[in-house]
Amino acid sequence: MKKINIVTGVIGSDCHAVGNKIIEKVFSEAGFNVINLGVMVSQNEFIDAAIESNAKAILVSSLYGQGELDCEGLRDRCIERGLENIILYVGGNLVVGKQDFSKTEEKFKKMGFDRVFSSDVDLNKVIELLKKDIEERFGEKID
């Protein structure tokens, strides 16, 4: 069966590499074809990779607290570049300091992300949600 492509990477000038490797491993084992762009990835690089690979989702990581700055406008760019329906997830230490997560979630959802995760989320839960979202949006089932 053809595997579903997803794109992942750490956005901006962030070079936290460990979590990125874990995401690649866990999602590959879950049956996805993971296009991992590594660290310090720009918005355009995410979109370029997603267009070329016909990816169904972009999973953005940000660990250094500047996520808001780096992620803003990603959805708008996706739309102009033809990825209107692509699933966008973001996760990590998205803002500086102790801020209420629900506020952070709201902020990123407003930016056009479909789901927002904190840094301690269980990746199995994310995989479940991603499978569900892909099925709902694209009608493609993943076992």
């Binding site: 267009i51 102009e80 570049r81 033809g82």
Partner: peptide
């Protein structure tokens, strides 16, 4: 107008 070159066509 709409879309970058090679970008969104549907809309």
């Amino acid at each position: 107008t709409g879309g970058t070159d090679g970008g969104n066509e549907d809309i």
